[in-house]
Computed example of a mutant assay.
Amino acid sequence: MGVNAENGFLGYTRVKDSTSISEAYVALSHNVKGDVQTISAGEDLTYKITFENTTDVPIRNWRLRAKLSGELYDLSTLVPSNASFDASTNTLTWTPSGLPDLRVLEAGEKGSVEYKISLKDRVPVNSPDDKNYTVQSKASFESDEIPAELGVNKVVESNISEVKMHTKFFASSTKNYNSNISSIVNSGPNPPQINKRTTYTIKWEADNLTNTVSGVKFQTSLPPNVEWTGQTETGGGDLTYKEGSRVVTWTIDSIPPHTGFLNPTQRAVFQVAITPPPNTESRMQLLKPTSYEATDVFTNKQFQGTLERLRVPLAQ
């Protein structure tokens, strides 16, 4: 790509997250510091713009701009660093008055500016199109006093700097005796009593906000004196129990965005039974800690965590 000049075609090259311009009057680059490619809601981004006069003449009366695109920027957190900000266009503007050391950009002279902004904590999800969010920023440099003999455009633009936003993945593990989310019926005294059998349902749930996640897996094992009854219900995926290892596993190939928000929660329910032996402590463990994992398909972020063990108090 390039621009037409009086003496021919002036070419320049584009590079992701920055622009290197050859034979133009300013070399301009615009990057996220730390080479950040992905981000979570509520986190900060710091951008850096560098510019260099590549001509043999000074540049005066210049303006440097950065335009923010995307509804996820929290504009109240913007730290403009000597720039003015136009909220109607989401544009920061630097001029020589804000950077007096660079009032005149001499031949070969370089300058740089930074600005910082956070993403919103709450991500809007109102329609099926609210997914795979990105935030973008683009810089431009211009001067009204470029000598005509240079034969270049007065406005030099960087490419679009784009950062992808991670989804939010939610996992939970709960116990129920009476519940309207399953047709499984429990029985026995509640709270449990010594030497008497009581059944409970264990509920695993997964919600997912803005990007598809894949390779979803929940896994735990049953403690001693806890029985697998074989009663199960799932809204998707495979729920298995291995008798020898007493391991319970729920796997789902993928969960689409908006699950638990615009679409139903993904859920697996299974029943266990306990018969508290004599000398049992005041609380009996129903389920050991549950591990979970998933991968954001859009950003490749790995989600991993552990949910607390489940216990039930015994009758006094």
Rank of each mutant, 00 (worst) to 15 (best):
D101S: 12
V32G: 07
F298Q: 05
V57R: 06
F169G: 01
S76F: 03
L78Y: 10
A315F: 09
K120A: 03
F261D: 14
V185Q: 05
A66K: 02
S182W: 07
E243P: 00
M1N: 14
N190I: 08
P223G: 04
A268P: 09
G11I: 13
N180P: 07
L262Q: 15
V104F: 05
R14Y: 12
V113M: 15
K154D: 13
Q304Y: 08
P289N: 15
K138N: 14
T210D: 02
N159C: 09
G188L: 04
V213R: 02
T13W: 15
N263E: 15
P256E: 11
T229F: 00
T54P: 09
S183Y: 05
L75W: 06
G188F: 03
R197E: 02
M165S: 08
V113C: 15
N31P: 01
G11V: 13
K288E: 09
S20E: 15
A87P: 13
G111I: 12
V3G: 07
E71H: 04
T134L: 13
Q266M: 15
L314H: 13
M1Y: 13
S291I: 15
K116I: 12
N132I: 14
K48V: 10
L28W: 07
T259G: 05
N159A: 05
T306P: 11
L28K: 08
Y12P: 14
I202G: 01
L92H: 01
S76R: 07
E243H: 01
D253W: 12
R14H: 09
G42H: 10
K48N: 11
V312L: 09
N186P: 08
F298M: 06
L28F: 11
R122S: 11
S254C: 14
S161E: 04
L209Y: 09
K67E: 01
P277F: 14
T198Y: 03
N195D: 14
F261S: 14
L287R: 04
S179I: 09
S187K: 12
T134G: 11
L92A: 02
N82H: 07
I194H: 03
V135H: 10
V57Y: 05
E281G: 14
N211W: 00
P313L: 08
E23A: 11
S214W: 07
E6H: 00
Q37F: 04
T212K: 03
S97W: 10
T201A: 08
N190Y: 06
I21R: 12
E106W: 08
G237D: 02
E233V: 02
R60Y: 09
L105S: 00
K301G: 10
D56W: 10
I146M: 00
Y133V: 11
D86N: 11
E142Q: 06
S179G: 06
L105F: 01
W250S: 01
S140T: 08
T55A: 01
L150C: 09
N180T: 06
